[in-house]
Design a protein around this nucleic acid. Structure first.
Length: 422
DNA sequence: TAGAATT
């Protein structure tokens, strides 16, 4: 039986970029817990219209295996290389049976605050609680957090809407949180000495005999893309990780010339005092740069805009740098705690998520708001976005003004006092 | 030989 002929629905286990995919809700990517028809995905893969990635072939193999074996619901992995299981609905998926309102959000930008997290997820529905996890000593974000909704439907909507959202240089991951327990902590392994040819899928295959893999990763050279021979495996439970160390440390993977080393990964928040000191005193805080850093950044920005658009950035506060935080100065877009951007010509069905999607990649966004008609609840054609940093806001405006969204051309500028109030 | 995944 060909996969193309199979109408069976699978549940996507992770967010997969697939721009040519179009679901019945017009989503352009495969998203966590999204029901996916096998034939749709398979035809895209085989047609080559979905750019091949290292795990693409394995997706086909996995689907073919599942077809020949018949339906089962064994989730031995939810990493990117085994994105599908053959449970027919998210409700049957073992990973979410315990909680339907509490989400874990991973891969958040380093400088994202809890308020920004709440603002982002609050655009979906009412939040019961929200927490950004921070290092207890330094207060620095650990890059993940939790969002607990009042309504399970909003949690599901948040996964469908926000999983895979690009924020600055990160692609966030939104999934149901497992119930917290000691047994799931410290289950992350660091693996070194891997053959440079080993794929992520092969790494998972090697380790999956010891338990359910939550995430896997092989580090690669940023320039060449070649494996650095080291990686991480996160198991569902600590005991599974312990068994994997016993079974695989100092062992040669099939076909490998050298044995691998498998041990518990260091906790990234446990840094030496030296590293902490250098981090605290040497790295400039992007959010609150000193005057010199601000001027340097704006100088670069002005050059950038000049080169790109042949104009000086019209609203650059260079001339009055240093007084931008004083009250009573009328600077377009400056809204006390950030830069307010006016977005005009949005469609009636526009919602907050589209503003996050458009502006999030440009930098720290603290708030978005679609202005709606009180009676119809439809967008009145405009909205506002607040960004923390002037430079990032200016680049976003330069990039998105004139952007075609659907059949509309957007007008994007710093908010002025003459126009609508947020 | 190094990622920010359980509050």
């Amino acid at each position: 039986m060909l996969i193309e002929d199979c109408d069976q629905t699978f549940v996507c286990r992770d967010f997969i970029k697939c721009p040519r995919y179009r679901s019945n809700t017009s989503r352009r990517h495969l998203q966590t817990n999204m029901a996916v028809r096998l034939c749709d995905v398979a035809s895209l893969l085989r047609s080559g219209s979905w750019a091949p990635e290292p795990w693409t072939g394995q997706v086909i193999a996995t689907m073919e295996t599942q077809l020949s074996n018949g339906p089962t619901c064994n989730n031995t992995s939810n990493g990117p290389s085994t994105i599908l299981n053959n449970c027919s609905s998210p409700v049957e998926s073992g990973s979410i049976e315990d909680s339907k309102t509490n989400l874990i959000v991973n891969y958040l930008p380093q400088n994202m605050t809890q308020e920004e997290l709440k603002s982002l997820f609050g655009s979906i529905g009412e939040i019961e609680s929200c927490k950004l996890v921070r290092d207890k000593i330094t207060g620095q974000s650990l890059g993940y957090g939790f969002v607990n909704y009042v309504d399970p439907k909003d949690a599901e909507k948040a996964i469908n809407t926000l999983n895979g959202l690009r924020l600055q240089t990160k692609t966030i991951k939104v999934s149901y949180a497992r119930p917290s327990s000691a047994s799931i902590r410290d289950a992350n392994l660091y693996v070194s000495g891997l053959p440079k040819t080993m794929t992520q899928k092969e790494l998972e295959q090697l380790f999956s005999q010891y338990g359910r893999i939550i995430t896997s990763r092989i580090l690669v050279d940023q320039v060449t893309g070649v494996s650095r021979g080291v990686g991480f495996i996160r198991f569902d439970r600590r005991v599974e990780a312990e068994e994997a160390i016993k079974g695989l440390n100092c062992q040669k993977p099939p076909g490998a010339a050298e044995p691998i080393t498998v041990k518990f990964a260091n906790n990234p928040s446990q840094k030496t005092s030296q590293a902490l000191l250098s981090q605290l005193y040497q790295s400039p805080n992007r959010r609150y740069p000193g005057p010199l850093a601000q001027q340097a950044q704006r100088f670069r920005l002005d050059n950038l805009l000049n080169m790109a658009y042949g104009v000086k950035s019209r609203f650059s506060p260079m001339a009055i740098d240093g007084v931008t935080s004083l009250a009573g100065i009328n600077i377009p877009g400056h809204a006390g705690s950030g830069w307010c951007i006016f977005v005009y010509n949005l469609a009636p069905d526009a919602d907050e998520s589209i503003l996050w999607q458009m502006f999030g990649p440009f930098g720290a966004v603290t708030n978005v708001k679609v202005i709606r008609d009180f009676n119809t609840n439809k967008c009145k054609g405009f909205g506002f976005v607040t960004m923390t940093n002037y430079d990032e806001a200016a680049v976003a405006i330069a990039s998105l003004n004139g952007y075609r969204l659907g059949d509309r051309v957007l007008q994007v500028s710093f908010k002025t006092n003459k126009t609508h109030k947020a």
